[in-house]
Amino acid sequence: MLFEITKDSLMNAVQHVIKAVAVNSPIPILQGINIQARADGIIFTACNTSMTIQSTSPQDGVSVNVQRTGGVVIPSRYFYDIIRKLNDELIVLEIKEQLILTVMSGQSQIRLCGMDSTEFPSINRGEQFFPNKLRINNALFRSTIKQVAIVASTSENRPVLTGVLFECDNNSLRLIATDGVRLASRTLHIESNTNDSFNVIIPAKNLYEVSKMLGNEDETTEIEVSNNRVRFIVKGLEVESALIEGNFPSIKNVIPQFYLCEILVDKACLLTAVECVTVLASESIIRLVAGENKLKLLSRTAEIGDIENEVPLLELNGEEFIISLNGKFFIDILRNSDCESVRIRYAGKTNPIVVFPNDSLMSTLFLITPVRTHN
């Protein structure tokens, strides 16, 4: 193996795939990055038990120049640190003796002991048949992941709640996540190559990594789904993720079908007020009091103090209400609502409040379960 590559191209590829390196894996080869030099370019791959990321740097004779094909798996930690500290813009990687990678840049020459790349699990090994394929605009997909995945659970007590449910029905794709207290849902119109329906649960943490790779907002991401894997393909990158087994809880009876009051409020003003009152909120619990012209927010912590804030209402339809909820959870929802104002629906003291971004083009909703208080 022998090829030349610019530092920028090499760093870009390594920074993508290193997110999938199994740092603490008992299997040494999974702590490395698989480098494959082919006639058409360089393929970098990292893999853990949940996710595989593959980055391709095509042969162009300028940023990448492959002179001899071959492959090796290199310890990711040392390789990444070495590349970052090299000063010269052009880097040469060569295998001069078996499983020894020589890295040359300017006056620097580093020799790294590698592992056999044929033993590394490939993203294309045992190619599965992916019967379900669809496309989503990068900007739309990134914003949807940001909105929905934020409420997925981080506790492994119920593994299905650590994922995001993808419900596809013809040209409609609905993403749902919940941690048992909050719920987020968004429905998208997508380009689908099939008319089949499918429901799969994808780990939220893997979706976050995918969202970070969606650079060009005008391009699309291709999604391929099989029985136990999902693959995301975006320019120069492929991410393959395991699916979470189990049944995602039904939300049919969770979303209130009627409401006693609906208010419309400026999102930026509300977010600022919620952030303010949550500072002194004992256990992050804040109180919302909706009156005729204003929404009052209150919180207190014994022996420290209390805060009261007000936000003007743009609309109020229905009866006035008082409800307590987790301020930090409310902040997460507001920060990830891409809109100028939000509609909040109150359906009773024991029912979750429903938050809608006030944009008719977005089929997005958030739920927060209220907190019972003594007063």
Rank of each mutant, 00 (worst) to 15 (best):
R335D: 00
M115W: 09
Q59P: 12
N199R: 15
T45H: 05
S363T: 04
G71A: 12
S155V: 06
N157K: 12
T162K: 15
I176D: 10
V14H: 09
L134C: 03
P352A: 05
Q107C: 02
V181P: 01
P249E: 01
E217V: 05
N87V: 03
K96Y: 02
A290D: 07
S25E: 02
Q107V: 05
E240H: 04
G70W: 04
V274F: 10
A290P: 12
L101K: 09
R182A: 13
G327I: 03
S226R: 07
S50T: 10
V21P: 12
N24T: 09
V14R: 11
D359E: 01
G126I: 03
I223T: 13
T49D: 12
M115F: 08
L93E: 06
P28V: 04
R186V: 10
K146G: 01
V239D: 08
E283K: 15
N124E: 13
N65E: 07
L243C: 11
P370G: 01
E94Y: 03
T6I: 06
S63H: 13
G318R: 14
G305T: 00
S282G: 00
N138D: 03
T162N: 14
L161H: 14
G114P: 10
T154E: 10
I74H: 11
T45C: 06
I35R: 14
E238S: 11
G106E: 08
T6A: 05
I74K: 12
K146M: 04
